[in-house]
C-alpha cells in the first residue's frame, strides 16, 4: 500500500512568521545596544574605582592637591565635599557622574583642579597619531611578511612563523630600547627624544607596530595557509592564475579576517602600550599624564583615560564589524 501526499502549498513549509525588522537593521540595532551596554559598564567600573579609593576622599583630594599628607580641618573638607558633591548619597554621585559623561564631562582632576577633559585633550592628539601610524605600519609589515613566507617550503615557513612568535612576544620597552640604541644613539638616523615631527614618530611607531604585526601575523598565517589549500584556490590555479596573484587576489582577503577582528582590540592595546613608549621616547601624549596621575592617585584623570580608551575600543569594534561585512559579504545577513 503506497501512500502519497499531494504536494502542499509551498508557503506552509517555509512558515511565514516574518520578523518585524529586516535582518540587517536588526543586526545593526543589536550591535549598537551591545556597544552602549559596554560603555555603560565601563563608566560604572570607572565610578566604582573612584569610590574604592581607601580613606576619606575629601582628605585624599586635598592631600593629592597639596602633595603632602596631613589632617584637614572640617571647613577645608566641607568646601571640597561641596565642590565634588561628596556629601550626596552614592547613588546621586553615580547618576551625576554618568550624566556628566553623557555631556562629555569626565570630572575634575584632584591635583590640577581643572576639568579632566581639558587635561587629556591637550595630549590626546599625539597619542592618537602614534596609534594610527602604528596600526598602519603593523598591517603593512604583517601583510608583507605573511604573503612572503606563508605556505612556502618547510624552512621558509618555519622562519616566517618563528619571526611571528618572537616578535609577538617582544616587550615594547625592550624593543624600544634596542631601536633607540641602534638607530638613534648608534646610527643617529632618528632623534633620541621623540618630539612631534615626522622623523620623531618612526621609532615609537615601530616599537609598537612590530609586536602587533607578529601578533596579528600568527592569526593571519594560520588562515592564509588554510586558504591556500582550499578547493577554490585550487580552482583558481587550474584557471591558470599565478601564485603571487592567487595570494594577493584570493587568499589575502580570506586570511586577513581574523586580523581585522583583532584590530578593534589592538587599538585599545596600542593606546595603552603608547604609555610605555611615550615614556621611553619622551614623547608628548597621554602617557605622561597617566603616569603622573597614577603616581599621585589623581583618580579622575586615570578613570577619564580608561573611559576614553573603552569608548575608543567600542567605536573601533563597530568599525571592525563594518569592515568585516565589506570583506565577507556573507556576514551581512547572519
Amino acid at each position: 500500500m503506497t501512500r502519497t501526499l499531494s504536494s502542499r502549498p509551498a508557503d506552509a513549509a517555509t512558515a511565514a512568521r516574518r520578523p518585524i525588522l529586516s535582518p540587517r537593521v536588526r543586526r545593526i540595532v543589536e550591535k549598537l545596544v551591545a556597544a552602549a551596554v559596554v560603555l555603560w559598564g565601563a563608566a560604572t567600573a570607572a565610578f566604582l574605582a573612584q569610590i574604592a579609593l581607601p580613606g576619606d576622599r575629601a582628605t585624599t583630594i586635598l592631600n593629592v592637591r597639596s602633595g603632602q599628607t596631613q589632617l584637614r580641618t572640617p571647613e577645608e573638607l566641607a568646601s571640597i565635599n561641596a565642590e565634588y558633591g561628596l556629601q550626596n548619597p552614592i547613588l546621586v554621585q553615580y547618576l551625576d557622574y554618568v550624566g556628566g559623561l553623557l555631556r562629555g564631562d569626565l570630572g575634575v582632576s584632584y591635583q590640577q583642579h581643572r576639568p579632566v577633559w581639558g587635561i587629556i585633550s591637550e595630549q590626546v592628539g599625539a597619542t592618537l597619531t602614534l596609534t594610527a601610524v602604528t596600526l598602519v605600519l603593523a598591517w603593512v609589515l604583517m601583510i608583507f611578511w605573511v604573503t612572503l613566507t606563508a605556505g612556502r617550503g618547510t624552512k621558509i615557513r618555519a622562519l616566517g612563523s618563528g619571526v611571528d612568535t618572537v616578535t609577538a612576544g617582544l616587550p615594547p620597552y625592550w624593543l624600544g630600547i634596542l631601536l633607540l640604541l641602534v638607530f638613534a644613539l648608534g646610527l643617529g638616523w632618528f632623534p633620541v627624544i621623540g618630539g612631534t615631527g615626522v622623523d620623531g614618530i618612526v621609532l615609537p611607531a615601530l616599537t609598537l607596530a612590530i609586536p602587533l604585526a607578529g601578533f596579528m601575523g600568527q592569526a593571519t598565517r594560520t588562515e592564509f595557509e588554510r586558504s591556500l589549500t582550499a578547493p577554490f584556490i585550487i580552482t583558481a590555479r587550474m584557471r591558470g592564475m599565478s601564485d603571487l596573484n592567487i595570494r594577493l587576489r584570493h587568499v589575502l582577503r580570506h586570511a586577513i579576517l581574523p586580523a581585522v577582528t583583532l584590530s578593534g582590540w589592538a587599538i585599545g592595546a596600542t593606546i595603552s602600550g603608547a604609555v610605555i613608549v611615550e615614556s621611553l621616547f619622551t614623547r608628548p601624549g597621554i602617557g605622561s599624564v597617566l603616569i603622573t596621575a597614577v603616581d599621585s592617585q589623581d583618580l579622575p584623570v586615570v578613570t577619564g583615560v580608561v573611559v576614553l580608551v573603552a569608548a575608543t575600543y567600542v567605536v573601533a569594534n563597530l568599525l571592525v564589524d563594518l569592515a568585516y561585512t565589506v570583506i565577507d559579504p556573507r556576514m551581512r545577513n547572519s
Partner: peptide, 14 residues
Amino acid sequence: AFPTLLLALLLVSI
C-alpha cells in the same frame, strides 16, 4: 574593553 596595562594602572592608582 580595558587593555591589560590600563586596568593594571587603574588598580595601582587605587
